[in-house]
Design a protein around this nucleic acid. Structure first.
Lengths: 142, 142
DNA sequence: TATAATTAAATTGTAAGCAATTTAATTACG
DNA sequence: CGTAATTAAATTGCTTACAATTTAATTATA
């Protein structure tokens, strides 16, 4: 019966830490697959939104991805340079910059199609745990 | 009865994305508390290990934190500059750099003691969900 | 309508984060 | 013993990430 008082500052008593470490480790596992289509993880999730929405402004994209213009501006310029997206100011409101997917960007989607299943095979998680994890994470995010 | 085939590339069908977003959002929530003791999140988790172990080499620290020397070297130099840790080569094996907590570093611990509970209050999660999340994350990490 | 307030991106500065390489020390082995 | 292989940190180069500020456009209001 150890009378050590609970140590709130032990690394293994933190909930944030495994979240932080896990996110990094999984992003790292994407790397070999993403290298094949020449995207970083952040570029990949931006493309996920663009494959879905075809076109939206930087602010909306940032809301989907939890990223701000400081991160997105250089990233989108890079994707533009590579011909995957276009960046154009909206005529009705010049403050808005509309990012739209290009033909080349659409084509890249086919090469990305099997990434989710390849990743699934890398992560050791039962379907039930995956569903539970998904639920809890979105509960924290909402 | 839509016969749309399942889209594996939808952002909301990804498991990695909420993990990535959640980790960032929670780290962001630490900021006001960590600002008070002048640490970044990464510096904080390094200090967590040092408060616990008192002294260890960069490699071990990196294993605990899932970080490499590329990240740790500049971070530890910063903590050294601030007088929170010392960095000394081990006499028996000069390849090893031993990081050790200082008096000042120990003192900082008291100011950090209430951070975990303050953070707990910020995250909307039942104790059961917190336990489940913890279990699943460590299962992925192991 | 002129000015103030707000909004969207961009910019600036700093800290991570990691792959790949380099340097220096130690260990293995021919 | 001497060279090769291994190991631990450091370094380099590039991309994220975000707070804070700036710029330019739009909207609200005195």
């Amino acid at each position: 019966m150890p009378n050590d008082t609970f140590n709130p500052l032990k690394l293994e008593n933190q909930l944030c830490f495994p979240l932080y470490a896990c996110a990094k480790e999984i992003v790292k596992k994407y790397k070999p697959f993403l290298d094949e289509i020449d995207l970083t993880y952040t570029q990949y999730i931006a493309m996920l939104v663009l494959w879905e929405k075809k076109s939206l402004n930087v602010k909306s994209l940032g809301e989907y991805l939890y990223l701000d213009s400081g991160t997105l501006t250089p990233l989108l310029k890079k994707l533009e340079t590579e011909g995957l997206v276009t960046r154009t100011r909206k005529a009705e409101d010049e403050r808005n910059l509309v990012v739209a997917i290009t033909e080349k960007g659409e084509k890249l989607r086919e090469k990305a199609l099997d990434i989710p299943s390849k990743m699934g095979a890398c992560v050791n998680l039962s379907p039930e745990d995956a569903a539970t994890l998904y639920r809890i994470l979105y509960q924290i995010l909402r």
